[in-house]
Design a protein around this nucleic acid. Sequence first.
DNA 1: CCATAATGTGACCAGGTGGTCATATTAGTG
DNA 2: CACTAATATGACCACCTGGTCACATTATGG
Lengths: 238, 238
Amino acid sequence: MENLQPSARTTFSNLPPEKQEKIVDAAVREFARHGYKKASINTIVRDAGIAKGSLYQYFHNKEELFVFIFERFTLLVKKTVAEQGRSNAVRAREGESSGVGQEDDFFSQVGRVLLAGIEFIDRHPEYFQIYLRVLFEQDVPMREKLLAQVRLFSREYFGPLCEAGQKSGAIRRDVPLAVVIFILDATLDRFLQGYAQGALDRDLDLVQRNRAELLARIRMILQVLREGLADGGTGQKA
Amino acid sequence: MENLQPSARTTFSNLPPEKQEKIVDAAVREFARHGYKKASINTIVRDAGIAKGSLYQYFHNKEELFVFIFERFTLLVKKTVAEQGRSNAVRAREGESSGVGQEDDFFSQVGRVLLAGIEFIDRHPEYFQIYLRVLFEQDVPMREKLLAQVRLFSREYFGPLCEAGQKSGAIRRDVPLAVVIFILDATLDRFLQGYAQGALDRDLDLVQRNRAELLARIRMILQVLREGLADGGTGQKA
DNA sequence: CCATAATGTGACCAGGTGGTCATATTAGTG
DNA sequence: CACTAATATGACCACCTGGTCACATTATGG
């Protein structure tokens, strides 16, 4: 009577937390494995240990469930980004450098963004898989709207950063901003995709043990982005 | 009696060519639109104008049809690569530079590879879509085997090129080959993905008219790859 | 303890899937 | 022409999909 909106009969958020968790876990796992369209509601309810009818009391349909899960992903992203500065500071206090420079120079900032991405994948590999699936699947319901909420590195995120970089003289000015952003976006995105691919198989221990190697590789990539591939740059010989 | 292998009852290649073409077209369109798993056999036979039973006389199952289509893709790729040098030569004779240098220097070669990719997408956008779908879909039947047959830019293709580049002194030697390949691969791959996204919508005329712009952008990307993003390189001011 | 409301349940639905096979059609041949 | 072998056909199958709904179960409170 009081709720004219077409809404679920029972609010999901009123469920006991452990039940919520089971459902979310099952949905995240299934969506990460199969993307939106191929994900099976039947599998989700089976894994969550609830009846299908119950799920449809919390969410009107598959789409609403998926949007709900994806919104949790964007929340997690924002949380990780917010924690990024603090965690870097902690590492610095403990004597371990963040590995890509603490300064505010342009490339150190880029490196820290990349590290934040890695941190996120370590903590939430399945959520990141869902993000990738949305990126590459064509017929996800609210695709554009969902992606607009995150857009990890692309124009919206790197735009201001690169603009500032050009103004401060850190980045060459004879190349359009779009080209700069394109190369950064392509490289960082690909790096995280590769990292995520591995993060799902490898156990976390291994990932942590190889952290030094990882940092070294990031530093080299940043160096190449800065100085170029051609011989005769600033850092010719090791 | 004579054929013990589990094979199709009727050989597809014995069909009249126009019928073959209809079937291939329908299959390519459907696989490009929906990837392997979500592609519908029913849609394919409807679009091809044949009965479902007929299709299953030419191919045992969906997988065999898909592998057949993908193999046509790899053939097209090899054909395009083979024609690449010749078509560049023709353009040069007609007075229009290839746009990214005719010399044999490393970055000109990279540019020409990129141009060959664009050429391919212009001619066969739907086949390229299928390739992308295989790249991003997890549960395509022969995925690894299929991809190994092409691997557009990655290690197998860029490996020798970059190695030669390092030996000839065109590329810096203080960075591992893998890092060099990674950045090249990421950038070129992303560029072609973006180009393919547009090539499916835009009509070919528009694509051709913007060729000058395209070449300019490629030249800039190559320049950045060569000299780096940082200010103070060789080409500081326009 | 009972009445009522809220919530959980799974058989069921229409529609779609890849795949099959008895039958109809066509082609080839003597 | 007729007989046979090859090919084309689509109704049909078992299975799966997202979604529904009459009913069972539980919770609430008078």
